[in-house]
Design a protein around this nucleic acid. Structure first.
Lengths: 229, 229
DNA sequence: CGTGACCTTGATGTTAGTCAACGAATGTGG
DNA sequence: CCACATTCGTTGACTAACATCAAGGTCACG
C-alpha cells in the first residue's frame, strides 16, 4: 500500500492500525459525497471507487482502489471530502479513525511524509487521467487503464503483469473512462480484435503487454516506481 | 496561498522562505516534464500551468497556478515529477529549495500538515476536473472553469467574484478544457450570447455569476472554503 | 509596411452518445 | 423444478458534439 520506504517498526505500526471492518455488497456508498468523515478506509477485500456525480445522473469514477489501498487518506488532512467512495463489487474495508492516523504521523516524521507521499501519488494518477480524458481516444484510454491496472495489481502481489482479476462491470469501466457503456463495449471488442486483450468473466489477460503499452504511450513513472528520497 | 490556519509566526516563516527569483517570457518550461527537481516554485507574478503532452503533440493543461500558488509542493515529497510546468504568460517564480521546505515542515507539525493539505486541495481540484473532462459538455466545462477561476482570483485578492484579469490565450484555455482552440472559440461565443461572459483582452467579466454557477453546477466546497480540522 | 501571434469563420469528417432491443447468466420464490 | 425478475453484455440505427482543415481578419510591434 504505502509506496514509501519505512523502517520495519514504522511499517508494522501502519499495518496494525486499529479499525472496525465493514463488509458491503456492490454499489453501496462507503463514503457519501460531500460527507465530513472521521475515518479513513483501507480496502481489505474487493474493489472500491472514488466518484463524482452530476445533476443529470452522469457519473465519473476518479480513482480505483484495489486491496491494500487507502481510499481517503486525504480526509485526515481535509475531513470534508468533495467526492464519494463506493464499493464496485462486494468489498471489505477497515475504517481507521483519523485520531489514530494523526497520532501516528505525529510520532514519526517518516510516516507523516509517507502519508503525504501517498497523496502526491494519487494526484499524479489524477493528473495523468486528466490528460487521458482530455486528449486521448476511447481506445487509447482503455489501453492505458489496462496497463496501469495490470501494473498496480502486480505491485500489490495480486497478479502478473499480464493476468489479473479485475471484478468491474462494463458500466463501471465506462464511468472510469468517461464514455458510455455501449461505446466501451465496442472499444473492448476493438482491443480484442487487435489481439491485445482477452477476458473470461473478471479475469483479464493481456496477450501482448509490450505492444499495448506502446499504443497507450504508457510511461509507468507516474506510479512512483522510483521510490522516495 | 496555503489554504490553512497557521499561527502568525508560522505564516511568517512560510512567506519569508528563501529562493532565487526567475523571470521567464511566455511559453517557457519552468519545470521540464519528468525532471527530478530540487526546488518548488512559488508564482510571484504572471500565470503558470502544469501540463502533460502526448506523442502526437496534443497537450493537456492539468492545473493553473495564479500568483501566490505553489506549483509543485508535490516535488518535496516526490522529487521526480510526472509532469511539466510552463509559463503561460510572462511570469516570475521563486525557486524555493526543498531543504528549506523540509526543514520548515520538520520544525512544525502544523506547517507539515499545511503542506499536506495543500496537496490534498490540489487533488480535489484534479478530481473535479476529471469528472468535468469525462462527463461534461464543452460549454459546461468552460462555465465551471470561469466560476472556479473567479473564486480563486477573489480568494487571492486579485479580483472580485465577477471581474478578473486572466492573461491566457484561447489555445491555452482549450488545452485546459480538453477541446480544440476552434471549438473553444465557438463555445465562448455561446456563453457571450447567453449573456454570461464578456471579455476585453485579458479582462474577464461575468455579468450574471449566479446563473453561471447554476448552469455549471458549481459547488465551491472542493476549493476548501471550510478550513482545516 | 511587413511579420507574427492571436482570434474568427465556414465546410466537412469522425468519434462517441442516444435509444431501443435482445441474449445470456444468475438468483428467487412458488 | 420452473416461471420470473434482475443484472450484465451485445448489437443496430440514428444523432449530436466536437475535430480537422483551410482561410481570412485584427492587432501590436519592429
Amino acid at each position: 500500500m504505502l509506496r514509501s520506504p519505512l523502517s520495519s517498526a514504522e511499517r508494522k505500526a501502519v499495518l496494525s492500525l486499529p479499525g472496525k471492518e465493514l463488509r458491503t455488497s456492490a454499489h453501496r456508498d462507503i463514503v457519501r459525497p460531500g460527507h465530513c468523515s472521521k475515518f479513513s478506509s483501507l480496502v481489505v477485500d474487493g474493489l472500491a471507487g472514488r466518484f463524482d456525480q452530476l445533476a443529470n445522473g452522469h457519473r465519473q469514477i476518479t480513482a480505483l482502489h484495489i486491496v491494500g489501498d487507502f481510499c481517503d487518506l486525504h480526509s485526515v488532512a481535509v475531513p470534508q471530502t468533495g467526492w464519494g467512495i463506493e464499493s464496485l463489487t462486494e468489498t471489505v474495508v477497515r475504517l481507521v479513525p483519523h485520531e489514530a492516523l494523526l497520532a501516528l504521523s505525529d510520532s514519526s516524521m517518516a510516516i507523516a511524509m509517507a502519508f503525504w507521499r501517498d497523496t502526491v501519488v494519487d494526484a499524479s494518477v489524477l493528473a495523468k487521467w486528466n490528460s487521458a480524458l482530455g486528449r486521448r481516444s476511447a481506445k487509447s484510454r482503455l489501453a492505458h487503464l489496462l496497463c496501469e491496472m495490470s501494473l498496480r495489481f502486480q505491485q500489490a502481489g495480486l497478479g502478473t503483469d499480464s493476468d489479473f482479476h479485475f471484478p468491474i462491470t462494463q458500466a463501471q469501466l465506462a464511468d472510469v473512462l468517461g464514455i458510455t457503456a455501449v461505446h466501451l463495449n465496442r472499444t473492448m471488442q476493438a482491443l480484442r480484435q487487435d489481439g491485445l486483450l482477452t477476458t473470461k468473466g473478471p479475469h483479464y489477460h493481456l496477450p501482448d503487454r509490450a505492444r499495448l503499452c506502446r499504443i497507450a504511450e504508457f510511461d509507468d513513472r507516474y506510479l512512483l516506481l522510483t521510490r522516495g528520497p
